[in-house]
Design a protein around this nucleic acid. Structure first.
Lengths: 226, 226
DNA sequence: TTAAAAACAGGTACTTCTATCCGTTTTTAT
DNA sequence: ATAAAAACGGATAGAAGTACCTGTTTTTAA
């Protein structure tokens, strides 16, 4: 087996990491030469690594609190800047189109959801080495649906989000554990309206659900915990 | 109209406060002699108040972040300790039995949900003056269902809650915006189990929903925002 | 004063969460 | 070794949240 593909694994969970290694180990043309439990030390570790990987398999299952995408993007950007030759394959539980599109736009060469079968991982590794990238149906769809929103996505990631007064008010009430109906009752408006503000809040803050909204609110001092 | 009933209103929302005053004003035997936008300054304000109210109508729609019941309890206790003669009628959007029971146990003389009709407010005001308390069907049910859990309720309110390792882990993942199914997948357990832990977390932290869980987690440094 | 933004409201479909049952297995502490 | 606590899992039901669509009215700013 000449010209093996050197693969690096970035995954915080030991069990899953070892499982991945075991699976990759069954493929003769693949060799795991690097692993890291987190994304932040990856660049450092790569610098004094005996055999530099061709492909980096990066698990993004646990982004830091309050930001669904930023850390993944940061790691991707950092690695690509330092080692432009390394191909980056993202492995994530998140199936959000925005998320996927943002990662690809920021330099990742492929995106796999975590419950894909080993065959797809194999295929993806070969593809990023051979063709430079691996775009499956899911990723393609995400990119298409986010094509027009290039600027929107960017401004969302880097500029401080501006919430309206009403949105902040409702966000505060959400943090105080009021339901949509209760908020509507308290503000003398329809619950449909509250629902609308809720959706806008999720969109503006880039949250997936209520938990994300609360973290955002606290982080940005829209509500005060202490 | 001799022997009017002097009533005080504690309500942060101007519109609702004025509306209440207007409604109470139509009852000849009732006179509003005191109002306050928040519960914390109530005791102070009562001390230099020309006509001391017989009944205090306290709105608890907006408890401080992360605690559904404590502030209401604190205000109730403070007023009762300083002015044992004053009858306290709680007015709240919360229909939780635990919440109601805790307030009554801590000295409130009556509990009304905010969407009750004016007639019930009238009835309640007369009742707390006449009989000393006003217990409606809802309140009675709440008290009965919480009768056996007296100690449980108390320990929940005053002792720091002890979460298990697994519970903290799952709480962390909730804060990171993972859904129950995603958490189950990540931890290699059934979503039913995650659901169980979720319910226990709500119960232990005294939260009403996910928002409460996140606030609790941040407040108690189970996750770190910054 | 005119256009844009914000707030409002209704409908519909689907997903996730909340709540109660019930039970088993594993871990921990006495 | 035994009991208690923790973790696990299944079924079911209903409440709340998420995500679209469609509009109108009010506010704000150019």
């Amino acid at each position: 087996m000449k010209n093996p593909i050197y693969v690096g694994i970035v995954e915080d969970q030991v069990l899953f990491r070892e499982g991945l290694k075991a699976i990759l180990g069954t493929w003769p043309e693949v060799e795991v030469v690097f692993e890291s439990p987190d994304g932040y030390s990856v660049v450092d570790k790569l610098s004094n690594c005996t055999t530099r990987p061709h492909v980096l398999l990066v698990d993004l299952s646990l982004p830091p609190l309050g930001q669904t995408e930023f850390s993944g993007i940061q790691v991707t950007q950092a690695v690509i800047q330092a080692y432009p030759d390394i191909r980056i394959l993202i492995l994530s539980v998140h199936d959000d189109e925005n998320f996927i599109a943002q990662l690809i736009e920021n330099g990742a060469h492929g995106y796999l959801v975590k419950d894909c079968d080993p065959g797809e991982v194999h295929e993806a590794i070969l593809a990023v080495c051979d063709k430079g990238s691996y775009i499956n149906q899911r990723t393609l769809k995400a990119l298409q649906n986010n094509l027009g929103r290039g600027t929107k996505t960017k401004s969302l990631a880097f500029s401080p989000i501006q919430l309206t007064r009403r949105e902040e008010e409702i966000l505060g009430l959400i943090c105080r554990q009021l339901t949509t109906d209760e908020i509507a009752e308290k503000l003398f408006i329809s619950s449909k309206t509250v629902n609308g503000h809720r959706i806008n809040l999720l969109q503006k803050t880039g949250s997936r659900n209520t938990a994300g909204l609360v973290v955002y609110a606290i982080k940005n001092k829209i509500v005060h915990v202490f």
